Amino acid sequence: MSDAPLSLVVFDVDGTLVDSQGDILAAMAAAFEAVGQPLPQRAELLGIVGLSLDVAMARLVPALEAVDHERMVGAYKAAYMDLRATAGVAQSSPLYPGALAVLQLLQDRDDVLLGIATGKSKRGLDKLIEGHGLEGMFQTLQCADFHPSKPHPSMLLAALSETGIAAERAVMVGDTSFDMDMAHAAGIAGVGVGWGYHDRQRLTRAGQVIDSFDALPAALDLIWG
């Protein structure tokens, strides 16, 4: 048994644990087609990944009415589910290289708990966890159904409350500025990842930025001393 105090590592999903950009872009195309709007550039679409869908659509096409944003969200969800059902989770949202090994390594530590904070719906998150065989790995699961969109700290505050971990013993791992701003707002450390959907330059509130999953354990040890 370790004498180290219990710590919590919370992961973002899209762009951090899994590369789902193909399905995201295809589902966005369906969403924009549903309201007869031209599709933005790839970089603009990926730039809003991590936000809850209603917030993302309003940011992408602010001139539309709320009812049109709702139509876009519905079309996006329907297209995303169809793509996932056709290809399967492992193919449509593959884990990034090294992700599973590091998750298993951290899960095996008796001083670490794992969690998720994602803009996905609960249904989408449950399907992803099942599709990758990650059931039972995460002690706290926070998603868009029950919280304001990132960067509001609600997801992380709920994760701290559920696990009983103090903010100074928690770390948020994510690929976007929304993740790092959320961590800052919750008073916990942020580790940015360089392989996701936001450029490194946007991760200004990250205490560290790593470029491969195998660098994460050392980054965590540096934070926790």
Rank of each mutant, 00 (worst) to 15 (best):
V112R: 06
A66T: 13
A99P: 01
V89F: 01
D68P: 04
L134H: 03
G131N: 02
V73C: 14
D108V: 01
G88C: 11
L60W: 07
V102N: 06
M72D: 08
G133Y: 10
D68E: 15
A58Q: 11
L114V: 10
M57L: 05
I129D: 00
L125V: 07
V73H: 01
A99W: 04
A66F: 05
E135W: 08
M81I: 12
D126K: 11
K120R: 10
A58Y: 00
D68A: 15
L113S: 02
P97L: 08
R59Q: 15
K77L: 15
A78R: 14
L100H: 04
V89K: 00
G124M: 06
T118Y: 06
G74W: 05
A66R: 14
D110S: 11
R71G: 00
Y80L: 14
V112C: 12
D111T: 11
K120A: 02
M81L: 15
A99F: 11
V67L: 06
P62T: 02
A99Y: 02
G124P: 06
H132V: 08
D68N: 14
M81S: 08
S92T: 12
V61N: 07
L64D: 00
G88K: 03
A78M: 11
S92N: 09
A75R: 10
S121P: 09
P94H: 08
G119P: 06
D54Y: 05
G124H: 08
E135T: 12
L100C: 03
Y80T: 07
A58R: 13
R71S: 02
K127E: 15
A101K: 12
G136Q: 09
L125M: 15
L100A: 12
D110K: 02
G131Y: 01
L106R: 13
L60R: 06
I129H: 01
G131L: 02
I129C: 03
A78Q: 14
G136V: 12
G119S: 11
G115V: 03
G88A: 06
M81T: 10
L95R: 00
G119E: 07
E65Q: 11
A90Y: 09
R59V: 10
T86L: 11
A66N: 09
T86S: 11
D110T: 07
K127G: 12
S121H: 10
L125I: 06
V112E: 06
L53F: 08
L103Q: 08
D111Y: 10
Y80Q: 14
K120F: 04
G131S: 04
V55W: 11
G119L: 04
D110Q: 06
Q91W: 00
M72Y: 09
K127L: 15
L95G: 03
L113K: 06
P62Y: 01
